[in-house]
């Protein structure tokens, strides 16, 4: 497993040279608190994100919870919820590390083959991951609006960063995209 720092070291060691270009790592350090807040935002809302994503996936494809569907008995539905949480957890680790190696090595490696062997439909899985991607972006951005929330709009404090952590939103989205690419 690597993080942003050890990744730089391992690639410098491949050419036996020093790590001299530190601009990317300095950016990681400078935006360190934002990154930790983003990780915290996902970790604190994980249960809600997972159940909403799986519920959304089923709403769009009711066949999943009818006899013969892949979420039909509670046992399989529970496995589905568990898997969604595992994927979200490894994406959170990757976001904390600033590097996708932990996600690749410990979660995505062989996942597609496992799902193929178990007969899990990848299109539905991908849809759940897409919903989690949108949720993660929303939680990191933390920018609720009237148009989405309507009467339930609830403002959480004042704006902390003007750019709404755009780079972290993009980074988190890239990890979800990695999951989607690995499954399809």
């Amino acid at each position: 497993m690597l993080d942003a720092f050890s990744k730089a070291v391992v690639s410098a060691d491949a050419s036996t040279s020093c790590v001299s270009d530190l601009s990317g790592l300095k950016a990681y350090v400078a935006s360190g608190n934002r990154r930790l807040d983003a990780v915290n935002a996902i970790a604190s809302n994980a249960c809600c994100m997972v159940s909403d994503a799986v519920a959304g996936m089923i709403c769009e494809n009711q066949g999943l919870i009818q006899a013969g569907g892949n979420c039909y008995p509670n046992r399989r539905m529970a496995a589905c919820l568990r898997d969604a949480e595992i994927v979200l957890r490894y994406v959170t680790y990757a976001l904390l590390a600033g590097d996708a190696s932990v996600l690749d090595d410990r979660c995505l490696n062989g996942l597609k083959e496992t799902y193929a062997a178990l007969g899990v439909p990848t299109t539905s899985t991908v849809r759940a991951v897409q919903i989690m991607k949108a949720q993660a972006a929303a939680h990191i951005k933390d920018q609720p609006s009237e148009s989405f929330a309507g009467a339930k709009l609830r403002k959480m404090g004042t704006i902390v960063t003007e750019d709404r952590c755009a780079s972290l939103v993009a980074e988190a989205s890239s990890y979800f995209d990695r999951v989607i690419a690995a499954l399809s």
Binding site: M1, L2, D3, A4, F5, S6, V9, V10, Y93, L96, A97, G98, V102
Partner: peptide
């Protein structure tokens, strides 16, 4: 590679 972040994640 062992670092604070990887130790925490592990």
């Amino acid at each position: 590679m062992k670092s604070v972040v990887t130790t925490v994640i592990a």
